[in-house]
Design a protein around this nucleic acid. Structure first.
Length: 1022
RNA sequence: GGGCGAUUAGCUCAGCUGGCUAGAGCGCCUGCUUUACACGCAGGAGGUCACAGGUUCAAGUCCUGUAUCGCCCACCA
């Protein structure tokens, strides 16, 4: 016989004890089945948290939701795997470490050797990874900790190289130009989300560009075209002037040439839809400022870059990395155009040059106008200087290129209504959505995914960082010789037999080592710079093997250099669902647990992450990585703002765990999870016992109150379960409250099971809440109290109580795992054998975490019992209402009678004891022809049952109450009558709806009659 | 600019295929040391479901428009 539950619920102790049980038994560590198959599996891979910082409340939500699913399925006997791990988060992590080193040591990244700096980041990662894993454990996450991965660990790194190699070999990785966000102050590239937009009070300068030959438009001689710009200094790199083909002036000006001021470059006037037509009255600010002529600077503006691509314009870069004007970084026509005016500008900072150029235009009378203009300008979030779009070479993945050898498996041609090939990477991700193999919950998010993929552009994957997967490519620029220089393309070379497999026909001096590297599995590609020079790229599949090390050594001896860039963080994230399982090896894990079942994440990374995982899962493994994508809400504060460090409105999950307990936190988070896109959580501060002041939310009290109630109800139950003997159970001896609570339990089981399977959280939890609190605690336990004192009734009540408690714990376990496990362990000690012999069994389990999920209780549903109890409850509420209304003290024992129709009378009399117990009534009697005692208070129930509480009359209160009731009834009756008088309603509405209205009218009439009768009696009696 | 969403009680939210006499928790009011729980028990007040039209026998629910708020994506000559 065990000790009872402690008087006070202490979350910390309970959490610790449960964690010990779970980890000692490795319950979260599934083995791939020895026989290789059969058991159904359920897999979730964690969205790996970034190692930049400890977890926040959003993580708590995200991981709680996953854990609910995993625990639910584990109890349903699935072989469940929840794969945990963390993400190296390239730029974000590198930045936080750089910041810390700068503030603590005053050093910059460039003060370190690469290896040394990476070591520093590694140290940060080790610290935060450990903290994050601890946090996840504290949150109760039932991850398979034995399989914890990190996106840059050896297993994942191998997958990254394998995937990269595969893409490279398939010709999907190429080198291309791209405008990046350049921070001239720190001289680094910034990701888009590191660019802060600030409203800047700037100017629009209107610059005149002289035409080479004047043009006559409608009798008017035009000497110049005027362009409007906010960044005049970029004009040095202009290579065209564009106008909208719909512009009236277009027919005279298109194809004409302009002499670019200062530079003297002759540039064409071209047509492009992108140009906004001028309109002084337009709502569109651009149209108001536009002259209809747009200077095109492909090297210094993203839009212009696109225009340049469309028209094959020259790209001239006039800036040095520090933001000064320079002829050294891609000013291709410098030698032809150089003149004194331009040379004067060289070396000037971009803003200095801006002034100088404006001044030049002013002097030459080419500055037509200057207008004030407020606009958003991207600034570096680090140095706060305006960012400069800067042209650079980057690695790309071709996402729309059909992959020939996948045509057989995935099909060929375009997906209907799109320009996406089925067997392109984009197609591989899009098709499963369209044919239903991939589903979003809520469904609306499928649209985000679909539009993104349909409009996808090639994926730039290189980043100029040190922290990340270094690109596994060695390259060298070499001279080459070829007779037919007009055919400079890889395809042509292949055709000419010059490249082939690249095994033995390399025509580059000293190419022997390439042969060897190819023999070792490397893949080689070429890119021709011009007619003499070619870049040779060698991709190495994996660096794990010693033999590859030798290849590398040879390559490096021969002058090849490894690319210094690293891969975009999302590249390794895209592989996460299978890199964690050991791909490219055909591991038992991969065979057993891939593809997974559900991915659970927030909507902001549907495009960045979800789509890419599907893409790479299909491409690398040949199947979608998961069939369901559950998108949960994002947590905001009470004002609807995102929780963030800078606003100081964040809530630390560890603080809540400390103050309210993990289960309370989980309860609150899941109860708030409906399919809305945001959840608001009012933030207030609280003082912890040790004096710390921290943010919290009153919302968490809901969870804490629930846990406290669960603890106490269980404590009470357990106190009454000593000596329980299932052999003493006899189904025939169950009373109506037993039948009722079992029926309610059975319904709750089916509701919870069904809605959990549909990824609902708030719904099953509120079913459980109602069942546990309102049915079980408020009614069943109260009714059971006296039975526990009765030796004859006790065994039945005990057995039902134990069964219901046992099942309630099982149902609640996915949501509040710790407290339920703790109580379950006690229940096992005090009442090890449970089950309702001949009615339902309760499968034994050493621990709740692996106990069987309730099922097959349908036979316990009992409409008769539910109907009767509902009536009894209504009667009790009516009596309680009178008591409260008439100020009858709670301890005053009442005498009550009731008048009703036969059926009701029988139910009430048959259960008089139940009414007496919970309404504080000493005598209760119902009858069809009872007369109201003169001094009785009366209340009329919905079914017109009249309840008389003796010796409690208060004429004034009575009249007021009945009068109010009468008014309400009359109003309601009128509505129903009007409905039924409407012929359209009677003929067109569904028959059951009409019948319902009819019943309702009868009920209302009866009630109203009764009320009126008593009302008139009251008046008659003075 | 494109897309997605929200607007229901003082607060945070349910209300799914139209049938509603619109619900829950918190907060508020009244009463209560009822031997599991005051993190509790019993009772109660509180809503022209953002606004304007429309469809329908019937609209919180469907359609159109307006307003306000929010998010994502693109962009900012």
């Amino acid at each position: 016989m065990g000790e009872q539950l402690s008087k006070v619920y202490e979350s910390k102790t309970i959490e610790q004890q449960a964690n010990e049980i779970w980890s000692a038994n490795l319950y979260f560590h599934p083995e791939p089945p020895a026989d290789g198959k059969d058991k159904k599996t359920y897999t979730i891979v964690i969205p790996p948290p970034n190692v930049t910082a400890p977890l926040h409340l959003g993580h708590a939500l995200n991981n709680t939701l996953q854990d609910v699913l995993i625990r639910f399925r584990r109890m349903q006997n699935y072989n469940t795997l929840w794969m945990p791990g963390t993400d190296h988060a390239g730029i974000a992590t590198q930045t936080v470490v750089e910041k810390r080193i700068l503030s603590e040591e005053g050093k910059r990244r460039t003060d370190f050797e690469r290896q040394e700096f990476v070591g520093r980041v590694q140290a940060w990662k080790d610290e935060y990874e450990a903290r994050i894993i601890d946090q996840l454990k504290a949150m109760g996450c039932s991850c398979d900790w034995e399989r914890t991965r990190f996106t840059m660990d050896e297993v994942c790194a191998k997958a990254v190289r394998a995937a990269f190699f595969k893409l490279f070999k398939d010709g999907l990785i190429y080198r291309g130009k791209r405008l990046v966000n350049w921070d001239p102050a720190t001289q680094t590239v910034l990701a888009d989300d590191e660019v802060e937009h600030e409203l800047v009070q700037g100017h629009f300068w209107y610059l005149r560009y002289p035409l080479v030959e004047p043009v006559n438009i409608g009798g008017e001689q035009i000497e110049c075209v005027t362009v409007a710009t906010t960044r005049p200094e970029t004009m040095l790199g202009d290579t065209a002037v564009a106008m909208n083909p719909a512009d009236k002036r277009a027919e005279y000006l298109l194809g004409k040439k302009v002499r670019l001021p200062i530079v003297g470059r002759i540039i064409p006037i071209i047509a492009d839809e992108h140009v906004v037509l001028p309109d002084a009255d337009s709502d569109d600010e651009k149209a108001r400022f536009s002259t209809g002529f747009l200077k095109v600077t492909p090297a210094h503006d993203p839009d212009d870059w696109e225009i340049g691509l469309r028209h094959g314009l020259e790209v001239i870069n006039v800036l040095a990395p520090d933001g000064s004007i320079s002829d050294k970084y891609g000013w291709t026509d410098w030698n032809e155009i150089r003149n004194e005016d331009v040379e004067n500008l060289i070396g000037m900072d971009r803003f200095e040059a801006r002034e100088a150029i404006i001044e030049w235009f002013r002097m030459q009378d080419l500055l037509e106008d200057v207008r004030e203009y407020a606009h958003e300008v991207g600034h570096s979030y680090r140095s706060h200087v305006p960012i400069e779009p800067y042209l650079s070479d980057q690695w790309y993945i071709a996402v729309k290129k059909p992959i020939e050898h996948l045509g057989k498996k995935f099909g060929e041609g375009l997906i209907e209504g799109t320009d996406v090939a089925v067997n392109s990477l984009a197609g591989l991700a899009l098709k499963p959505l369209l044919d239903g193999r991939l589903r979003f919950i809520p469904e609306r998010y499928a649209k985000t995914y679909q539009t993104w993929l349909e409009n996808l552009r090639d994926w730039p994957i290189s980043r100029q960082l040190w922290w990340g997967h270094q690109i596994p490519i060695w390259s060298q620029t070499l001279p080459f010789e070829m007779e037919d220089s007009s055919a400079l393309s890889i395809d042509k070379l292949v055709d000419a037999g010059m490249v082939g497999d690249l095994t033995d026909k390399i025509m580059i001096t000293g190419g022997e080592y390439l042969k060897e590297s190819i023999k070792q599995g490397c893949w080689v590609r070429m890119r021709f710079l011009d007619e003499q020079m070619v870049v040779i790229y060698v991709c190495i599949p994996t660096l794990a093997l010693d033999v590859k090390k030798e290849v590398i050594k040879e390559l490096e001896t021969a002058g090849f250099v490894r690319d210094t860039d690293v891969l975009d963080t999302w590249f390794s994230s895209a592989l996460w669902p299978f890199s964690t399982m050991g791909w490219p090896e055909d591991t038992p894990e991969l065979k057993t647990f891939y593809p997974g079942n559900v991915l659970c994440t927030a909507r902001d990374i549907i495009t960045l992450w979800v789509s890419r995982m599907v893409m790479m899962g299909q491409y690398c493994v040949g199947n979608v990585p998961f069939s369901n994508v559950y998108i949960h809400a994002m947590i905001q504060d009470g004002e609807g703002r995102r929780m963030s460090k800078s606003l100081g409105n964040g809530i630390d999950p560890l603080v809540i765990i400390e103050s309210h307990g993990t289960d309370a936190m989980r309860f609150t988070l899941t109860s708030m999870t409906t399919d809305t896109q945001d959840i608001r959580m009012p933030v207030v501060s609280m003082t912890l016992p040790d004096g710390r002041v921290e943010n919290t939310s009153p919302k968490f009290d809901i969870g804490r109150n629930f846990c406290n109630k669960l603890w106490n109800a269980s404590r009470f139950a357990l106190m009454n379960l000593e000596g329980l003997d299932p052999a003493e159970f006899d189904p025939g001896k169950m009373d109506i409250t037993d039948r009722w609570i079992l029926s309610r339990l059975a319904k709750t089981v089916s509701e919870v099971t069904e809605s959990l399977a549909q990824f609902k959280y708030s719904e099953p939890l509120s079913s459980l809440y109602r069942f546990f609190w309102n049915d079980f605690c408020d009614w069943y336990l109260e009714w059971a109290k006296p039975r526990m004192q009765n030796e004859r009734k006790k065994p039945i009540a005990q057995n039902v109580l134990a069964f219901v408690l046992d099942h309630t714990l099982r149902l609640l376990h996915p949501f509040v795992p710790f407290i339920t496990e703790g109580i379950f362990q006690k229940l096992n000690e005090i009442a090890p054998m449970r089950g309702l012999k001949g009615v339902a069994e309760s499968k034994e389990a050493k621990a709740l975490v692996i106990a069987q999920w309730p099922e097959g209780l349908e036979s316990l549903m009992d409409e008769d019992a539910e109907k009767q109890i509902m009536l009894i409850q209504a009667a009790i509420r009516t009596i309680r209402d009178i008591r409260s209304n008439r100020n009858l003290p709670p301890n005053k024992i009442l005498v009550v009678s009731a008048k009703s129709q036969q059926e009701t009378v029988e139910i009430l009399n048959g259960n008089a004891e139940l009414i007496q117990q919970l309404a504080g009534v000493k005598e209760f009697e119902a009858g069809t022809a009872l007369v109201k005692p003169a001094n009785a208070a009366i209340s009329i129930m919905d079914d017109a049952t009249e309840v008389y509480v003796h010796d409690a009359v208060d004429l004034r209160a009575e009249r007021a109450k009945l009068k109010k009731q009468k008014e309400q009834l009359e109003k309601a009756k009128k509505v129903v009558e009007a409905k039924l008088a409407n012929e359209n309603f009677v003929t067109k509405a569904k028959p059951e709806v009409v019948a319902q209205a009819g019943d309702r009218l009868t009920e209302l009439s009866e009630q109203l009659n009764t009320v009126e009768k008593h009302l008139s009696e009251l008046y008659n009696s003075g």
